[in-house]
Design a protein around this nucleic acid. Structure first.
Length: 276
DNA sequence: GCCCAGGTATAAA
DNA sequence: TTTATACATGGG
């Protein structure tokens, strides 16, 4: 992998196992917008445009320094997904199919609070509306930077009340967002600590927040803290597992369970007929 | 109108 | 411990 400077940003050579649509538009992040093959999005208080020519990866509106410090990590470019896919494929023949179906999925390393807050909003909700709510959340309460808005900090939201969030139209989730913001801002819930401690302990830490159950905690840990042993299971996923892997438990998916889960999720979503 | 959406809190059995 | 229902909102 090599990073070269271009007119607008950087060009990255030697990137494999990355498909931008599969990664940026698969329900793990909600701030990317596709426009004729190019994805624009905001993360870490920066707005960039990401695209590929099939050979190289391009990131516009950025610098070599930011690539090294932020985007290389955000896109998880230093993890060998080809190797991991090989391992996951060995576990079960259907996992091999699932890996082959969307081999370009990567687990983004998003900011912990953004991931947690986003998945609080995601509960009993659909992706289109989740994106709208998050957009309004950023426009109303995020810091304005140039022509875009950063994701609002926990500290900012902690000073608000649930009623103050009415412009974002997230309904009953307002009180959950505020409770999460207050507990994160005060340190009562320590997100950074959740990177290192035992998985069950980290899960319990997040579940101190009202509106955070096992599923939201798993998603926050997987997408915000890169705990790739996380295995988020929703109703759809439960059905997929029962149908596709009747004799397996979540523990049988190995150290890269979270990555395996994403392959299964994408595969089962795109092929609903496999449940019939 | 009715149903559902990458769930969770709450009450009741 | 397990099961049922409400929850806000908006698209299909």
């Amino acid at each position: 992998m090599e990073c070269l400077k271009t007119e607008n940003g950087v060009k990255i050579t030697g990137v494999s196992d990355l498909d931008l649509a599969q990664t940026l538009d698969c329900g793990q992040s909600f701030r990317w917008v596709e426009n004729s093959g190019k994805f624009s999005g905001v993360a870490f208080r920066r707005k960039v445009i990401v695209y590929s020519d099939g050979e190289n990866l391009y990131i516009d509106n950025t610098t070599e320094e930011d690539f090294e410090n932020i985007w290389k990590n955000y896109l998880d470019l230093e993890l060998d997904y080809g190797k991991i896919r090989g391992q996951i494929s060995e576990i079960h023949p259907i996992l091999k199919e699932a890996c082959a179906y969307a081999p370009g999925i990567r687990i983004l390393r998003q900011e912990p609070w953004e991931a947690l807050c986003s998945f609080i909003i995601s509960q009993n909700n659909n992706i289109k509306r989740i994106k709208g709510i998050i957009e309004r959340l950023c426009e109303n309460f995020g810091e304005k930077i140039d022509d875009f808005y950063a994701f609002p900090t926990a500290e900012t939201l902690a000073s608000l009340s649930p009623e103050d969030l009415s412009p974002i139209r997230a309904g009953f989730r307002h009180k959950y967002i505020i409770d999460g913001a207050r507990k994160v801002a005060s340190g009562e819930v320590d997100l950074e600590k959740c990177r290192n401690i035992g998985y069950d302990e980290a899960r319990a830490e997040l579940m101190k927040i009202k509106g955070v159950g096992g599923k939201v905690a798993d998603c926050a840990l997987l997408f915000g803290l890169h705990r790739i042993e996380a295995f988020p299971v929703d109703v759809w996923m439960r059905r997929a597992l029962e149908k596709l892997f009747p004799n397996m438990t979540e523990n049988d998916f190995g150290d890269y369970a979270g990555i395996a889960q994403q392959y299964i999720f994408h595969y089962s979503r795109m092929h609903p007929e496999i449940f019939i």
